[in-house]
Nucleic acid binder design. Sequence first.
DNA 1: ACCAGTTTTGTCAATAGTGACAGAACGCGC
DNA 2: GCGCGTTCTGTCACTATTGACAAAACTGGT
Lengths: 201, 201
Amino acid sequence: MPRMASPPQTARSERTREALRRAAMVRFLAQGVEETSAEQIARDAGVSLRTFYRHFGSKHDLLFADYDAGLHWFRRALADRPDGEPVIESVQAAIFAFPYDVDAVTQIASLRADELDPSRIVRHMREVQSDFAHAVRDHLEHRSDDPGNEALAITVTARCVAAAVFAGMEVWMQREERSLADLAELCRTALTSIADGLPVR
Amino acid sequence: MPRMASPPQTARSERTREALRRAAMVRFLAQGVEETSAEQIARDAGVSLRTFYRHFGSKHDLLFADYDAGLHWFRRALADRPDGEPVIESVQAAIFAFPYDVDAVTQIASLRADELDPSRIVRHMREVQSDFAHAVRDHLEHRSDDPGNEALAITVTARCVAAAVFAGMEVWMQREERSLADLAELCRTALTSIADGLPVR
DNA sequence: ACCAGTTTTGTCAATAGTGACAGAACGCGC
DNA sequence: GCGCGTTCTGTCACTATTGACAAAACTGGT
């Protein structure tokens, strides 16, 4: 269960990963996620089952395979913000500049919504929030003059920023109508609402 | 993998659960967590492997079996706080009044630290934080005059409160010396630091 | 092209975790 | 105690994951 999503090194392994990704996507779309076995994917990709698990910690990791790239993108976007800009602004700018691949996102999203155990999505969201918080924390540490002395303040801030963004997502998810614009609005409101104190006392 | 920790109903099943808990603890302490198989535990408890998994979503859930009780306790403690008290105070009061069973905690903690994959602990912590946030949110919703209209504010606040508490824990965990008093101090500081705005801008 | 060291795969063998279905045990009204 | 609907278990069969170890492919230097 500890998905260790082993990081690939050589071009060869990257080819294998790509083959697995493709094979999985084809099967997933054709017959559904739970109806596709890991062995099937491995065979389609022309590798052994064991090799499959060397590249992806679990069958379901394939559904979130694009996630790492997004995280890297976010970290870089944060780093590219001008010095001295308030965190909240930096985070907003980084989030809203994200280059969505609408087709891919839509395709995966439909799979996730239909075939996937909701608890799995929730768990993944928690992981994403955690990584998000770490990214923000690293950003703050990098900015700080004396990170060691501000450890608590930095950690608290980073985690709260992440909490706010994901609170926005949570509220958005519970709505009937879900537009990208609404999501952005909710996240923006959530972030600005914590800058000067908690919105509810 | 979706650990569904099925909620027990009858006295009989409670007996089974208890037997499994005990059998597991004995084995875990004697030979370590990873060196104990689920089948072994089931056999020791006198039930089938399948029955084991009906009561505990996974072998590792047994290590956190006491957790649900703690969560319930926290929810009740929150509900018992006087009306009109600021959330942050309520949460602090609820946290610090928690009745630890020092022996049990120590025993389990040593197991967790030695035998367990760190990523497993991290994952559990994320789950705990999430449940914690939900508890706070329910508390706020209960207090609010118009929860529907304040959905975002309530969710943001609940999640940030949880984020602060767990930020305190994170910092504490990274220290060499870890005393209960330090933990309390860190959580207190973390919580008060977000009341009037983020500690880092 | 050849050798030595590194990375990636395949094979084997266990353990972990689940769905489906039938039988056993339990709680309740008569 | 008896019959009946509900809950709990055991058995079977299958998929998901992982550790250990050896063979195969890839790399850089000569």
